[in-house]
Design a protein around this nucleic acid. Structure first.
Length: 491
RNA sequence: CGGGAUGUAGCGUAGUCCGGUCAUCGCGCCUGGUUUGGGACCAGGAGGUCGCAAGUUCGAAUCUUGCCAUCCCGACCA
């Protein structure tokens, strides 16, 4: 390896770790398993938030905010729920520090012990349902369709950047309905919203389905999910929507009076997606050169890099760049003119590739003479010379094309990595090979599911909605089965 | 919390077995000059409590003990 090449590789790995993955998007801090989301990464999250928020509003939801702290007693009111979350809660026991009488620093003031400990929310069902009790009396108060954007804390034993951090950002919708039917419809509606967002904004194809009893949310009667396949062949649960039945209404005594004057508990749903989606975005589209962002979520869709020698050229080329920026912005394109004169063009090319900017426009003295620019697309790395006059139209179409291409590419990958196993040996061989989704028969019992998990680490990702019914035999037990389910090793 | 590994400058690292001019190298950073259509080059320069705390020793990045953190594998999970 030449010295120059070696240097580039080192440089590359530094940027990759330091700027793209760990630093600009997040980095582990001194706080256990928590992440710092740097400005560029946060800009991506904001784009995701904006798109999701609009979809929630369009389906009749409103935003609200509930407390970070939950009294410990709230958590014990729903049995399955406490079972699911008790082991991973951060607990506040005191409210004051004082100077250490024995030396330096501060200590927890033992006199400041709370009568009742507070839990830092791992999810907000309990505090929200205790609040809903006061909001709901009549069928006229229903449905109650509320979403909250918040942070939550789950003290997991093992953390993983983006996919399982101690603290994460998310949205959680909590709705209350007069009938079971309406609540199920809401659960399914929000699953559709998530699938729509994943596929049309993130360009990630997902399988919609329901979880098995083993994988269900703590306190839910049914958990719907969208499952995506990452480039390494592992599955990622990208979003969930839960039908909670009357569990929380009963636990928090939330009743309403119907039109007929009868009193009944309300029916509930909850649904959420988190900063884990940023992990999904990275793991679905990135290549060896760094991030690849779908145009709909890129903080900048186009970056203009001026090329010049003299100050005079710099002025001229930047002026031309500003014109192009204005033209493109009239078409709603998000453009950044990278007019830093502290970095060279090659450096900028590489940097914007790392950051996943969908389209790059390079403009130099030669272009000024010819009335052209060089454009390069991030997804295919192809370059093309275009006339400035055609630019806005072509860029708008190119961005649409890139958005579609990313989706198609991911879908092709998933198709190529979705297999059908008809025997145990086949099943194991596929798992140990390239991984991916495996469609196989299962006898429907939690015991078999658990056994397969123990033997292979593969879990049932979901039972797809509208699944094809087909008689078969369970790959493990040989017992009769009516349909294939999706198995995979997962994050 | 169990098993394994690691912790040296902003990042990546050499040195640790065998204690003594060992704090190494690359990237990055700063200054000056030449450069500028794919990650520039030359010259000079700045930057480190060797994870933390005790201990052994004349002497510790190096040995001992404890603690902390990170990564991988389990258990757990959006």
């Amino acid at each position: 390896m030449s010295k120059e090449h070696a240097n580039r590789e080192e440089n590359y790995s530094q940027w990759y770790n330091d700027i793209v993955i760990k630093a600009d998007l997040a980095e582990n801090s001194a706080v256990r398993g928590c992440m710092v989301i740097k400005p560029y990464g946060y800009a991506i999250w904001e784009k995701m938030q904006a798109a999701l928020d609009k979809m929630f509003k369009d389906t009749g939801h409103v935003n609200a905010y509930f407390p970070l702290f939950i009294p410990k007693s709230f958590l014990s009111k729903e049995a399955a729920h406490v079972e699911g979350f008790a082991k991973e809660c951060a607990v506040v026991t005191h409210y004051r520090l004082k100077n250490d009488p024995n030396g330096k620093g501060v200590i927890v003031d033992p006199d400041a012990k709370l009568d009742e400990e507070l839990i830092v929310r791992p999810t907000s069902e309990t505090i929200i349902w205790s609040t809903y009790k006061g909001w709901i009396q009549s069928y006229r108060d229903l449905p109650l369709l509320v979403n909250q954007w918040a942070n939550v804390v789950r003290w997991e034993m093992r953390t993983r950047l983006f996919l399982r951090t101690t603290e994460f950002l998310w949205q959680e919708g909590h709705t209350a309905h007069a009938t079971s039917k309406e609540a199920v419809e809401e659960t399914e509606r929000m699953l559709e919203v998530y699938a729509d967002f994943a596929e049309n904004f993130m360009a990630i194809p997902v399988i919609k389905g329901v979880k098995t009893a083993n994988e269900r949310f703590a306190g839910a009667l049914e958990t719907y999910c969208i499952e995506a396949l990452m480039q390494d062949g592992k599955a990622l649960q990208a979003g969930t929507s839960h039908f909670l039945g009357q569990n929380f209404a009963k636990a928090f005594d939330v009743k309403f009076t119907s039109k007929e004057g009868k009193s009944d508990y309300v029916w509930a749903t909850s649904w959420g997606v988190s900063t884990r989606l940023m992990g999904a975005l990275i793991m679905t589209h990135s290549d060896d050169k760094g991030l690849v962002l779908p145009p709909k979520l890129a903080p900048f869709q186009v970056v203009i890099v001026p090329i010049y020698r003299s100050d005079e050229e710099y002025q001229k080329v930047c002026d031309a760049g500003r014109e192009i920026k204005k033209d493109l912005e009239r078409f709603g394109v998000l453009v950044k003119l990278d007019d830093r004169d502290t970095q060279k063009p090659g450096f900028k090319f590489a940097e914007h590739e790392f950051r996943g900017v969908p389209v790059r426009i390079a403009i130099g003295p030669r272009d000024l003479e010819n009335g052209t620019v060089e454009i390069a697309r991030r997804d295919t790395l192809e370059k093309e010379v275009l006339h400035i006059a055609d630019l806005p139209n072509k860029i708008v179409h190119l961005l649409e094309h890139i958005q579609n291409n990313l989706y198609t590419r991911a879908l092709d990958f998933r198709t190529a990595n979705t297999h059908t196993a008809n025997s145990w040996d086949e099943f194991v061989e596929m798992l140990d090979g390239s991984g991916g989704f495996i469609q196989a028969h299962w006898d429907g019992t939690p015991e078999t599911e658990e056994k397969i998990k123990e033997m292979t680490k593969a879990t049932i990702r979901c039972i797809p909605l509208n699944n094809k019914q087909e008689a078969g035999k369970c790959i493990l037990t040989g017992n009769p089965s009516t349909q294939r389910v999706i198995f995979a090793r997962a994050y």
